[in-house]
Computed example of a mutant assay.
Amino acid sequence: MATPPTPTVGRTVLYRATEYDAEQINKRRKDAYTSGSYAEENGTIAHVGNQVTEGQVFPAVVVRVWEGGLLNLQVHLDGNDVFWATSRQEGEDVGTWHWPERV
Results as ranks from 00 to 15, higher is better:
residue 9 V to Q: 08
residue 26 N to P: 05
residue 30 K to F: 14
residue 54 E to S: 14
residue 37 S to L: 12
residue 71 L to G: 02
residue 13 V to H: 03
residue 76 H to P: 00
residue 73 L to I: 02
residue 97 W to I: 03
residue 14 L to H: 09
residue 103 V to R: 04
residue 59 P to G: 00
residue 95 G to D: 02
residue 94 V to C: 09
residue 38 Y to M: 00
residue 93 D to F: 12
residue 70 L to Q: 11
residue 18 T to P: 06
residue 69 G to C: 06
residue 36 G to P: 14
residue 77 L to F: 03
residue 34 T to Y: 14
residue 13 V to E: 02
residue 77 L to C: 03
residue 54 E to Y: 12
residue 43 G to W: 12
residue 71 L to S: 01
residue 16 R to I: 11
residue 41 E to W: 10
residue 71 L to R: 02
residue 21 D to N: 14
residue 20 Y to W: 13
residue 84 W to T: 05
residue 13 V to L: 02
residue 12 T to G: 00
residue 31 D to S: 07
residue 63 V to G: 02
residue 82 V to L: 15
residue 46 A to L: 05
residue 84 W to C: 02
residue 64 R to C: 11
residue 88 R to Q: 06
residue 53 T to G: 12
residue 97 W to E: 02
residue 101 E to T: 10
residue 3 T to M: 05
residue 86 T to Q: 12
residue 12 T to Y: 01
residue 7 P to T: 01
residue 95 G to W: 01
residue 35 S to D: 07
residue 39 A to Q: 13
residue 71 L to H: 03
residue 24 Q to D: 12
residue 102 R to I: 00
residue 19 E to M: 15
residue 66 W to L: 05
residue 41 E to F: 11
residue 95 G to T: 01
residue 10 G to C: 02
residue 15 Y to M: 06
residue 13 V to P: 03
residue 3 T to H: 00
residue 28 R to V: 12
residue 58 F to I: 04
residue 7 P to H: 04
residue 32 A to R: 10
residue 78 D to M: 07
residue 24 Q to I: 12
residue 65 V to R: 05
residue 12 T to Q: 01
residue 34 T to E: 15
residue 29 R to K: 07
residue 6 T to S: 12
residue 32 A to C: 11
residue 51 Q to W: 14
residue 31 D to Y: 13
residue 36 G to S: 08
residue 80 N to L: 05
residue 70 L to Y: 12
residue 16 R to S: 14
residue 28 R to K: 15
residue 79 G to F: 09
residue 84 W to N: 08
residue 43 G to L: 09
residue 84 W to R: 08
residue 5 P to F: 03
residue 10 G to S: 03
residue 61 V to Q: 04
residue 98 H to L: 10
residue 27 K to M: 11
residue 13 V to Y: 04
residue 54 E to H: 13
residue 89 Q to D: 15
residue 100 P to A: 04
residue 53 T to A: 15
residue 88 R to D: 01
residue 10 G to I: 04
residue 8 T to C: 07
residue 35 S to A: 05
residue 14 L to F: 11
residue 21 D to C: 09
residue 46 A to C: 07
residue 22 A to V: 10
residue 46 A to E: 06
residue 95 G to V: 01
residue 81 D to C: 12
residue 26 N to D: 12
residue 43 G to N: 06
residue 25 I to P: 09
residue 81 D to M: 13
residue 102 R to M: 06
residue 45 I to E: 08
residue 33 Y to I: 09
residue 42 N to K: 03
residue 56 Q to H: 13
residue 99 W to T: 05
residue 86 T to G: 05
residue 52 V to R: 03
residue 26 N to R: 09
residue 91 G to P: 07
residue 22 A to G: 09
residue 97 W to A: 00
residue 36 G to C: 11
residue 80 N to A: 10
residue 29 R to Y: 08
residue 14 L to K: 07
residue 18 T to G: 07
residue 73 L to E: 02
